[in-house]
Design a protein around this nucleic acid. Structure first.
Length: 440
RNA sequence: GCGUCGGUGGUGGAGUGGUCUAUCACAACAGACUGUAAAUCUGUCGCCUUCGGGCUACGUAGGUUCGAAUCCUACCCGACGCA
């Protein structure tokens, strides 16, 4: 993996870059499509590509449970397994420590409405009996499979081993995503754990890298690795360390410093993830604190974010990569992005609206991005709001597909436009103009 | 014509004397969703409301009863059977 900064956004941390991976170049900033179970839900890889997606993110925990990381390895890695030829990443399972742990069954997620006072009460010590599928143990996390109830103990070493089997281009250290509702004492404790896990992740990663290289000439090893002309650097995934620290400035800064300095015999993380569950109003400062400290020459990924306004915020504050389930999840659930805000396509007013979601949108659903010339007849070449509303009301599979295509295109295209605006020196104008209409 | 069974809110369908504006499902309407426990979940769903409550409802009309969607009578409608 190689990262090159092409241009910086004046008076800020923002930058435009190119991230080279064994499966192609990612132009950054970039939006990564989430494909948890080695599929971007409801879309085939061609549709994902046509929506403008450059890179897909799978999930360690989910693929480990099903179909099993060894199957994916034997298939030739996650990209080959899912028939996606571009760059891939895998998340470490650290988010599941949170989502299946303290957040399980609760109304907290990546973004927590901190205005809800009940969520601010530290609950750690009086709700340990609350049902949860992930429990933090001595040196790892015990997961109770949501599929069959079986217990699986995941350590940093295990997560890295799984990720090496999954074979993505970029992988993440095993971390603990914490809730902003946790008190300082717990945040410190969790952060220390995340740092220890980061070091163990890096150590295991380097070990597996060496082993893989040593075996690369052995008969029967995966083709990808049996290339005598390639070094361990080229045949192994890049590993990103993850910064945590909750809402606390001192902890965020401390984490950025420690994670960027962790090394095993002079080998450091290749890039960084910025993790945690945020109160929306805390996010920009947290990102800034961290990116002021992280080494400039390495890529940064703001994990699990976000909404259009978050993308502007992140990019301005030095984020290179984003991933988020929203475009596809909202799409499947009937919420669609437009330049003037999100719409709920199932609303009554759209039942007889025969216009496209957005007239000048370049996505397949709206009639842009056509491989073949537009139809000469009176079809119009697009799917109308009324039709998509009909598909949702009829619970037709195509509904989620068409909406996901549009949403993914909307978000990836937005990031591309932001990227271009930095190259064109009009980032702030573009941001102001876009957000004024979007948030109106 | 006789007989049997049945008529419940937008739909299907529970309920067979009080705890019934009436279980439940569907439809409808609105909302939520940020490293995917998610093609999911939540709320509303007779009318009015100053959100405390008020009013009207179980084919129609009577009746029994302190009290009826529930029991009785007549009528109307439907399905089936026999003529």
């Amino acid at each position: 993996m190689n990262f090159k900064i092409e241009k910086k956004l004046a008076n800020s941390l923002g930058r435009v870059g190119m991230l080279e991976t064994p499966h192609g170049v990612i132009e950054t900033p970039a939006f990564v499509a989430v494909g948890t179970k080695a599929t971007v839900k409801s879309l085939n890889p061609e549709q994902v590509r046509e929506a403008g997606v450059q890179v897909v993110l799978g999930n360690t925990y989910h693929l480990y449970l099903q179909p099993g990381d060894e199957i994916v390895r034997d298939a030739g890695g996650i990209g080959k397994f899912m028939n996606w030829s571009g760059p891939t990443m895998t998340d470490s399972g650290g988010f599941q420590v949170f989502s299946l742990g303290v957040a399980y069954g609760k109304d907290i997620s990546k973004i927590t409405k901190i205005t809800d006072p009940s969520l601010l009460i530290p609950e750690r010590f009086d709700d340990s009996d609350a049902p949860r599928l992930a429990k933090i143990g001595q040196d790892g996390v015990s997961f109770k499979s949501h599929l069959d109830g079986a217990i699986h103990y995941i350590t940093p070493e295990k997560s890295i081993e799984i990720q090496h089997n999954l074979g993505a281009d970029i992988i993440f250290a095993f971390d603990e995503c914490t809730s902003p509702a946790e008190d300082l004492k717990y945040q410190e404790e969790a952060l220390e754990r995340t740092h220890a896990w980061a070091e163990r992740s890096l150590k295991e990663h380097l070990k597996l890298k060496q082993e893989k290289f040593a075996h690369s000439h052995v008969l029967g090893s995966p083709r990808e690795y049996a290339r005598p002309d390639r070094s361990p650097e080229q045949i192994s995934p890049a590993l990103f360390g993850i910064v945590q620290g909750g809402r606390e400035e001192s902890l965020r800064k401390k984490s950025a410093k420690i994670i960027s300095e962790i090394n095993i015999d002079g080998k450091y993380f290749d890039g960084f993830g910025i993790g945690g569950s945020f109160a929306k109003e805390d996010m920009s400062s947290a990102v800034r604190w961290v990116n002021e400290i992280l080494p400039e020459e390495k890529p940064r990924h703001l994990l699990g974010i976000g909404e259009p306004e978050d993308l502007f915020m992140g990019i301005e504050n030095g984020v290179d990569l984003f991933d988020c389930v929203l475009p596809t999840r909202l799409g499947r659930n009937g919420t669609i992005y437009t330049k003037s805000g999100k719409i709920s396509i199932t609303n009554t007013k759209f039942r007889n609206d025969f216009t496209p979601i957005e007239k000048d949108c370049g996505c397949y659903t709206c009639g842009g991005n056509r491989k073949s010339p537009p139809d000469k007849g009176d079809l119009g070449g697009f799917y109308s709001r009324a039709y998509i509303a009909h598909l949702f009301h009829g619970k037709e599979m195509l509904a989620g597909t068409l909406a996901s295509i549009h949403n993914l295109y909307f978000i990836t295209n937005l990031v591309k436009k932001i990227r271009q605006s930095i190259l064109d020196d009009n980032f702030y104008e573009f941001k102001e103009q876009f957000l004024r209409e979007y948030l109106s």
